[in-house]
Design a protein around this nucleic acid. Structure first.
Lengths: 230, 230
DNA sequence: TTAATGCTTCGATGGGCATCGAACTATGCA
DNA sequence: TGCATAGTTCGATGCCCATCGAAGCATTAA
């Protein structure tokens, strides 16, 4: 399938089909998934999944990677992920005020992956802590790293100048789905999540967006990074 | 119609219907429109429009204002407008690179309204000019007003401290649909457009997003604000 | 009151598309 | 070579929903 040039309603309609929306949100975890995994996630047969996936790839929302007899699908880039997150945010804010509970799973509220960076309560507290420590400066709901912050992150082993050379913005404030407040996105946000995972402070729960901190990992996180109070 | 709590696919599906998408983009001009006007914009009968509008209002995407026998509809808020603009941008960036022509109407490419601020070639050049003059500082694709800029805007009659007291961010970089580059959004962007209109340098073309500059208005704009070269 | 305008409700029609069974291709494994 | 698994194509089915004609309600103007 080669749709060519999807217009606004076409893109929206692609996301608007429940099965496809399930697949897309499943891919929000940032991992590439196979066609069958996505069929399971959306609770449909794999024939149906195949046709949906062909449409999503044809429109350019998904990238596909063939590996042996498997086909791995992932979101095309952060822009697509950003759109999904924006829509999630909007659909939350459309809810009547008193029912805004956020995701039902408490672990998901606590810490989860938003495409490639940390979201949830911990993500928000980390972002606020970085601000309070004046490592990050937020003006007009936009963020940048301060001189003090540059020193801090470099000391943590982050090659900021390498990150800055990328096309992607270093530091972006991403509105949190469950917390209704910002967390850190951009390439620095990505680096931070990777740092937390490679130091083995936390593990990703398989097949979900949940990030699970070990008790020692949690302590280490508190020692190494400034977190705002609850 | 009282949908109550629209989920992500529901929101997307609402936008995904071509007629509804036409109405929503018509409302991107920021003006409130009546049901019949929207029916015309979407090229459908008013019965059909009525049912579409009921759904959009029920989901909370539109606000409705009853005035005599007329019903005025407008986008609920900037968040909804932001989503539409995000989707427009994405659908543009999904196009094959060599066909990215932007809107067909040249006047629309030159200057148009993006919800409540100026977009198009002039919007982009204005934003870039403000940066070059160091009135606005952009880091990591995010903008803030410099001290120099504050003095400049205050001299132009803009009560910046009043704008800053609002919840809305003062200064936001909004990715331009046709130019693939940023223009100024946020409350300062809104003020700037209003300033241009109240000084009568430009007029809005009825029933469209086009902003039409008079010859003298264009000169005045060049005199009063820094515009980047073509 | 009557007529005109703006909008809505109801009901019938039709088209688009998601769905899955069945059959098929492609890859990997033994 | 044969079997299992991953994914696709085709065709038939059925549902959802956009559409509009006709009739109805509400508001304004005369």
């Amino acid at each position: 399938m080669q749709t060519g040039s999807p217009s606004l309603p076409q893109v929206a309609a692609l996301i608007g089909e429940p099965a496809r929306a399930s697949m897309l949100t499943a891919l929000m975890a940032g991992k590439a998934l196979t066609a069958t995994e996505l069929a399971l996630a959306a609770d449909i047969s794999c024939q149906t999944a195949s046709s949906h996936l062909a449409k999503l790839v044809g429109a350019g929302l998904l990238q596909v990677l063939k590996q042996g007899r498997h086909k791995y699908f992932r979101l095309r880039d952060g822009q697509v992920a950003g759109l999904i997150e924006t829509m999630l945010n909007l659909s939350i804010s459309l809810l009547p005020v008193n029912i805004r509970t956020g995701p039902p799973d408490p672990a998901l509220r606590r810490a989860r992956i938003c495409y490639d960076h940390l979201a949830g309560e911990l993500g928000v507290r980390l972002y606020q802590g970085l601000q309070q420590a004046e490592f990050i400066d937020e003006r007009d709901a936009q963020a940048s790293v301060t001189e003090k912050g540059k020193a801090f992150f470099q000391e943590k082993g982050c090659d900021l100048s390498a990150l800055e050379r990328r096309k992607r913005p270093l530091c972006r404030a991403c509105l949190d789905w469950s917390e209704r407040s910002h967390h850190l996105a951009g390439s620095l946000g990505q680096w931070l999540l990777e740092d937390i995972l490679t130091r083995d402070w936390a593990r990703r729960q398989p097949d979900s967006r949940v990030v699970l901190l070990s008790p020692t990992g949690e302590k280490a996180l508190y020692r190494n990074y400034p977190l705002a109070k609850q």
